[in-house]
Design a protein around this nucleic acid. Structure first.
Lengths: 179, 179, 179, 179
DNA sequence: CTGTAATCGAGACGGTACGTCGTGTCTTGGT
DNA sequence: ACCAAGACACGACGTACCGTCTCGATTACAG
């Protein structure tokens, strides 16, 4: 069922997705879907969440060079955003998150929190290595790194190229360099 | 018609908004709506856009103290995000922008561009006053100031208080202080 | 549903009858009507047909006096045509029959044929009693008796009184008296 | 406009005929149609009536042999009913007449009355020639001749062949032969 | 093995809204 | 001054899905 949901989001888009279509594709009665999820959003949400369950134990590279590592990671993130296959589901996910506080909370807990923690680990390592201000608010650092990237992708305002990723890292590190 | 659309978005939310309801509220036939807009999204989009048409000639305060001015502006922006009346329409707008590239383009041109230019004016003034790196990429500066704010609001991940606004300004200015 | 259709034909007339009104009156979704009938005409047709399903086993009086019996029957038919309650549905039925060959075929099979057969029985009895030409084409006899009556009613060209009914019977019997 | 109406009745049938289509076909504004006729039925009615205005001064053949003359006329009428081109408009006309008493009255006055009078002329001639009962109710005679024909055509219950036309004439003349 | 439950697919149901079409009225611009 | 063109408020169309509700038929378990 989750697979059917994911496929259909990619094929027809979130707005035109119907529960009947999911049921038909999955070879399942509608009632069975309603038994497990309260809404279309919840199904789609879970279908994407199920995907990310697979990628356990994210860990960021730690070569000792924070700037290089962050550029690697941000360039990869930007490239991922450009992947057509993931575009539709992630935009669907964002749509849900914006409009449904409950799903937003689950999203933060199940998907964002682990990622954020992994990233913070890398930043703490940098703090210990004296490459980052020891007093820096790490949540703020992560926002500086990722929020502009995400926003430009969502609004399609500008291409997400390597230069942009690099500029983000450089400016962020200037803002939070050790005292 | 645009007024009716705006009111209804606030009252029932974007997802539950129907064209029939807009037509009824506006005392208009459905066909008349379809004659002018291709979709529900377009109507809502225009209804919000029409709002901002009113606020002509935005200009940021320029007391000579960039940090103080930016804090004032960002605190105001954060407060605006907290205003219940604007919340529903703006979330609706974001939903549209995320999912419809065409509307996103119009949004950038009609709403974002003028705001962005006004902000850049203030930043250029600061560059002339030696309060900001003369070589700074002003688009990037604006992303640093606004993207984290917007993202936290959209995802409801953390309260948008004055401290957060101040921290954004301070970190951004550290990143782009004059050489 | 059929009851609702019948009532509404009587109330507002066939031309102003809407499927939505039938659905509303019957407390039923429109789709349910469309699931069972292809058109408004078919619903109305069935609603009238269902009525006549009730009156099983029609039999004409047979007192031994053909002329008297036929006058009784034709006067009754004329009176029935004058009944306001049946007028609207029967006119609706005629409208359908005229314009839809398929419904016309069903009408002949389901409604007209049994009536016609019952009438023929009475005529055959009269033939055996020497009151009617043994070689008479009974379909033609029935047309002579009923077609003028029906036509005058449809076109509202003249009142359907007893004298007219009697005249029809007398002339018909003159035309088909035994050799 | 009347021409456009008549063509469209033949092409799409009365039920699917729209005033907008008539206006478009006639190269005329809708308002102009509404200025002259109160309803779709009235337009169609007039369009057919206009046709018959052409055929001035109908007169039935009078060879001196009533039976032969009537058979000629009824066979011709039956053939006319079979003409595909006239079928749609005449059925449309019947539909109007059945459901609208006002149009029915106009129809009787403008179209039926002249025809009926012409036919009566021929019958009176026959009465003078001793071929028809001098006391016969001529309206009734005409009903006997035409009503069965019309009814079978409307209900499509049986083919309208020459044999049927002949049988009608023969039976009618038996019913009304001179005393 | 067999009878009884629980579960599930299928899809009918009462509804709501869709986007389209036609109505009859009103307005506009060109002749 | 007229009239084609067509916008308008309105209402019904026939369709798509909604979320709820029976239906069998197919399992899985108990006796």
């Amino acid at each position: 069922m989750l697979t059917a949901a994911r496929e259909l989001v990619s094929e027809v888009g979130y707005a035109k997705l119907t529960i009947e279509a999911i049921a038909a594709r999955a070879g399942v009665g509608k009632q069975t879907i309603y038994r497990w999820w309260p809404s279309k959003g919840a199904v789609v949400f879970d279908s994407i969440l199920a995907l990310s369950e697979g990628e356990r134990g994210i860990e960021l590279p730690d070569t000792g060079d924070l700037e290089a590592d962050l550029k690697t990671v941000l360039r990869a993130t930007a490239a991922e955003f450009a992947d057509a296959e993931f575009e539709a589901p992630i935009r669907a996910l964002q749509t849900e998150i914006i409009n449904d506080p409950d799903l937003a909370a689950i999203y933060r807990e199940k998907m964002e929190a682990p990622m954020r923690e992994a990233k913070k680990q890398r930043l703490r390592s940098a703090q210990r290595a004296g490459q980052l201000d020891a007093d820096a608010d790490l949540d703020l650092v992560l926002d500086f790194l990722y929020a502009p990237l995400t926003q430009r992708w969502l609004e399609r305002s500008r291409p997400l190229d390597d230069a942009f990723a690099d500029a983000l890292v450089e400016a962020t590190l200037r803002a939070f360099r050790p005292a």
